[in-house]
Write a protein that binds this DNA or RNA. Sequence first.
DNA 1: GTGTAATGCTATTGG
DNA 2: AGCATTACAC
Length: 794
Amino acid sequence: MNDNYLNELNEAQRAAVEATEGPVMIVAGAGSGKTRVLTYRIAHLIRKGVDPFNILSLTFTNKAAREMKERIGKIVSKSEARNLWMGTFHSVFARILRNEAERLGYPTNFTIYDTDDSKSLIRTILKEQGLDEKIYKTGMVLGRISAAKNNLIGAQAYLQNPAAQEEDRMSGKPKIGIIYDQYQKRCFKAGAMDFDDLLYNTNILLRDYPDILNKYQDKFRYIMVDEYQDTNFSQYVIVKQLAARFQNICVVGDDAQSIYAFRGANIQNILSFERDYPELKTYKLEQNYRSTKNIVNAANAIISNNRDQLEKNVWTSNAEGDLIQLMKANTDNEEGQIVARSIFDTKMNAQAKNKDFAILYRTNAQSRAMEEALRKMNIPYRIYGGLSFYQRKEVKDMLAYYRLAINPHDEEAFKRVINYPARGIGDTTVDKLIIAARDNDVSLWTVCENIGPFGLQINSGTTQKILDFVAMIQSFNVMLPVQNAYDLGNHIASHCGLLRELYADKTPEGVSRYENVQELLNGLKEFSDGDTTPPIDLVESDPELQRIEVAKQANLLEEAGLSDKPLRTLDQFMQDIALLTDADAKETEEDLNKVSLMTIHAAKGLEFPYVFVVGLEENLFPSALSLNSRTDLEEERRLFYVAVTRAEKRCTLTYASTRYRWGNLTSCEASRFLDEIDPKFIEYANAAARRQYDAFNEPSFEVKKPNPGTTATPAPPKKKNLVRATTAINSAPAPIDNSHLKNLQVGQRVRHERFGDGQVTNLEGPFPNTKATVTFDQAGQKQLLLKFAKLEIL
DNA sequence: GTGTAATGCTATTGG
DNA sequence: AGCATTACAC
């Protein structure tokens, strides 16, 4: 047992670790050792004699939970660490909901609908209601429903909520409440919960069943919430309820890193927290251990542009380090090339490994150019996020059969595979089934099981096909408790026809699909053999539940006449599949030394020695959709802050002047965020960036570090009135012909190629050396020399 | 009912 | 450009 853990902490960290009783808020700047504090805090609790069964720790990813548990295990003991309740909100409360599902009228084996399932269900409802999909966009409808649930507004309440109704009327979508209501009913009938339901229903459970609230309040005597800035109202209330009795609640977060407001996260939760617990103790972790001074200072400069923030002073005693590198490319492909090239060079010059590099981007679509460039230079890489394994079509098809075997009422799984592979039950038939299900208020499955009594207008041949399908699913269903996950999964794969269908396709894509299903079966095999951790590493909860579980399994084994080996079944495997993300995937040997590619969102909580943030262009980063409101723009800026603070040694920012979007070439201008970093933190690391800088920064055009390489290159022949003096590394760029500005007056509206439109507020000195002060609508006040400024009078 | 061609839509971010 | 849904021929 390691007794020295407290000595490994600085004063603030140590105080936060030792403040175990009562409400605590830890404001943790980027790279300030937050994970270490959380880890040691939990270890400290256990050392002080708190039973791990009584500790709940909510993390942002399951992987984070797994890793933290491992580290805690090294300080206390492995067996003690195992008993902690640790995981994401969704996985922890999915677990609890399974135990208590019956109270809410849900089956224990309820399905978790993913976003595709939810959208598909909404599409079905739109069709039924005769609503136009063009007006009621599924994503938008789901967004409204999701927002309502995250604010704990149920369907009925939504229909009676004047504000919501008014808003929907105003936006020309008055039926959203009806859709919401239908959606909930259909989910319930299908024995399914979507992601938001996992939190919403937990709230219902704790609100309406005092004995259950009591049970979990008593159980979770110490609660910790990581990444608190990214929790939504629904999560906030759950935590508040659970912590109400003992009030040993510790939240950790950084308002500067709040990047999930778009899905309901609410910084307000931090303020509410202060209000809820007046005796709150607050600790600030401000020393950054991760990054160099230049990175920390540049990041501080970025975030200081936000109005909404908690007071905080992040600093570091680390070395000065490299400046922020800025590189410009002509195209998105070239951007990929300069990044790949830079990685290659750094590997050579600094003995860096592939895994020391990360490429971060705003949107997943940007990965393509990066991948291509890395492939060409033979640099191994791994993409996080995007389409995960479990989201691939063939895998989802296979999983749909499994889901149906476990919960035949699962409507989305049913629709997915009722006629795939083709078995002669087409759309018309399925539509009849859907109508019958709706009219009788039952599930599709119930209709199929009782196809005679419902008296459907379906011919006998098709009826037989449906009955065959039902019989097949039923045969899978009865095997559930007596077969292990692999045996049953394999059996289903070969009997449902999917494997045959895929095997028949000999195209490269077809082969790959077949292999993916095989890969899924391999996963089942590993799970069944039990030599790896289950898909979700939520620790076996309280002894009571464990006993029930063990007894259940023993019974089943007895019935099956099997050995004493614990049976790991398909439904166990499937339980949390829907909640798995790429970030949770265990790293294989292979992944260990690869360059990481991911969105900035996915990079939250991670760190790398060398970070590239690519695509720093207006309308991409910040996203075009964020430009309308200050709060949205501030979220983008926090995102940029998160990106830069991932870097330990060096941070490189890149942008391209043209980029393919929607299949055609569009021109781009550099992101406003680049202007927000003081130039003294920036090194213009390629010639294009230096040129751009010189052109942009009239009137100062201070001389940047001379590039040793440039003097050797022959200067192009000089031309008069060259707009951009490409050789102007050591000399001022040639003035452009600006005689049209000669009579510029204060008060006139002007347009700048970079800063947009603005108004002249002051003029100083005689033309052509006039210095103009212009207040731009977007970019704010700038001083420009008329001699150089690319201004146009409006 | 099935398979292929044509159309149309999309690309924030994610559990 | 790439994917998904739709339209149309068989």
